[in-house]
Computed example of a mutant assay.
Amino acid sequence: MKQRKQSVLTSWMRTVLLSVLALVAVVACTPDGAQVPSASDGNAAAPVELKFGVGPYFPTPNETRDQFEPLFTEIAGAVGATSDVTVTEDWVGLSEALRAGTLDAAWLGPWGFVLARHNSPEIEAIATVEYQSKPFYYSVLMARADAPFDTLDEAIAYSQSASKPLKLSLADVGSTSGWLIPTAEFVRRGLDPKAIFDYSEGASHAAQAIAVVSAQVDMASDYNRNLDVLAATDRIDLGELKIVWQSEPLPNDPIAVRGGLSDDVKRGLQQALADLSPERAAELLPTNYTGFAATDGSNYAPIQVAGKTVGKLK
């Protein structure tokens, strides 16, 4: 019995000694001044996989995925992670997923970002995309080239005097250029578009110009970047359309991250985006996107103002 106890004690001491030696080895291999990561340290290491989201920029989810997945793969790699990409069917769903934490980062529309941050202030914008080397774009209202009006004022007057009102289509309510900004313009004019036009909302951007060209609607909202894409892919002929109203410059789309994401990962993603050269951007991004500018989100204040104008924000 005594011999058994000595054997157990010897085995226990051997285990303790091996554990101490292993700890000494880790410390010896750690650079001076560095700390060994602990399980409770939120900034200890990048996650194995980062979950990215992007909205319905292109006519089909597969086209959107093909356009944006290379970028997300590259910036995830910059922080030592792999990427998983989700393409949502609408902008509101994308914002909600970021708020819920089911996405780590997302390429949001400006309005989607403002909505998400309004409800979850911990969500941060880390970069603004540049389009043709500019960090801004425009919301537009368009009509067929042969429409009997050339401006929004003329369209309003025509719709009010015609035997039946013009058909106006705005995009889904989570869209900055497709819903928020045109709606804010009508509010600024003291007008209710539902009382002036045969009004509808909820369409995707990809469908808006096509609906105008094919005479399904008389006027529709969109943004200049999307019209460029549709023309470049031969889905529309810009000569068949005319712009009857254009907004003031709007801040381009942000890359935003969820609350609770490691500071090291946020900084790493922001740096990877800001370091993207125009040449590399041409390889990773859709046509005419030339890179990113770092941001703290303050450039989206005009979108917040528009949200208050239409009564969606307090």
Rank of each mutant, 00 (worst) to 15 (best):
residue 305 V to F: 12
residue 45 A to C: 08
residue 280 R to G: 00
residue 13 M to W: 04
residue 110 P to F: 05
residue 24 V to K: 05
residue 223 Y to A: 01
residue 72 F to N: 02
residue 55 G to L: 10
residue 27 V to S: 08
residue 234 D to R: 11
residue 172 D to P: 01
residue 18 L to D: 08
residue 186 F to V: 07
residue 50 L to T: 02
residue 27 V to M: 09
residue 115 L to F: 10
residue 92 V to T: 10
residue 100 A to D: 13
residue 255 I to W: 00
residue 221 S to E: 04
residue 105 A to E: 03
residue 290 T to I: 06
residue 273 L to D: 04
residue 299 N to D: 13
residue 223 Y to T: 06
residue 86 T to N: 10
residue 199 Y to M: 02
residue 42 G to F: 12
residue 285 L to I: 01
residue 58 F to C: 11
residue 117 R to M: 07
residue 293 A to G: 06
residue 28 A to L: 15
residue 154 E to C: 03
residue 303 I to G: 07
residue 186 F to Y: 06
residue 146 D to I: 09
residue 15 T to Y: 08
residue 204 S to T: 11
residue 293 A to D: 06
residue 289 Y to P: 05
residue 304 Q to V: 10
residue 209 A to C: 10
residue 202 G to M: 02
residue 283 E to A: 10
residue 146 D to H: 10
residue 245 W to E: 02
residue 48 V to L: 11
residue 164 K to Q: 15
residue 44 A to H: 15
residue 89 E to D: 14
residue 58 F to D: 13
residue 196 I to T: 03
residue 306 A to L: 05
residue 109 G to R: 03
residue 207 A to L: 13
residue 129 V to N: 03
residue 57 Y to L: 14
residue 234 D to V: 09
residue 260 G to D: 09
residue 129 V to K: 02
residue 251 P to E: 05
residue 85 V to H: 01
residue 238 L to C: 01
residue 306 A to P: 06
residue 197 F to P: 04
residue 151 T to M: 07
residue 74 E to W: 00
residue 53 G to A: 05
residue 243 I to G: 06
residue 36 V to K: 12
residue 88 T to Y: 11
residue 19 S to Q: 06
residue 47 P to I: 02
residue 245 W to A: 04
residue 4 R to K: 13
residue 26 V to I: 00
residue 129 V to H: 07
residue 30 T to N: 08
residue 22 A to I: 03
residue 44 A to W: 14
residue 204 S to W: 04
residue 103 L to R: 00
residue 191 L to W: 07
residue 241 L to Y: 05
residue 178 G to L: 01
residue 82 T to Q: 12
residue 267 R to E: 15
residue 275 D to Y: 08
residue 36 V to N: 11
residue 40 S to Y: 11
residue 73 T to N: 15
residue 121 P to F: 06
residue 117 R to T: 13
residue 135 P to W: 02
residue 201 E to A: 12
residue 5 K to E: 09
residue 28 A to T: 10
residue 141 L to R: 06
residue 61 P to D: 06
residue 225 R to Q: 13
residue 180 L to F: 04
residue 149 F to L: 04
residue 190 G to A: 07
residue 86 T to D: 09
residue 143 A to S: 08
residue 240 E to P: 00
residue 264 D to E: 14
residue 271 Q to R: 10
residue 253 D to N: 08
residue 205 H to T: 09
residue 252 N to V: 06
residue 168 L to A: 02
residue 287 T to I: 14
residue 52 F to N: 03
residue 295 T to P: 00
residue 241 L to N: 00
residue 286 P to F: 01
residue 246 Q to V: 11
residue 52 F to V: 04
residue 114 V to R: 01
residue 189 R to Q: 11
residue 91 W to H: 02
residue 242 K to E: 09
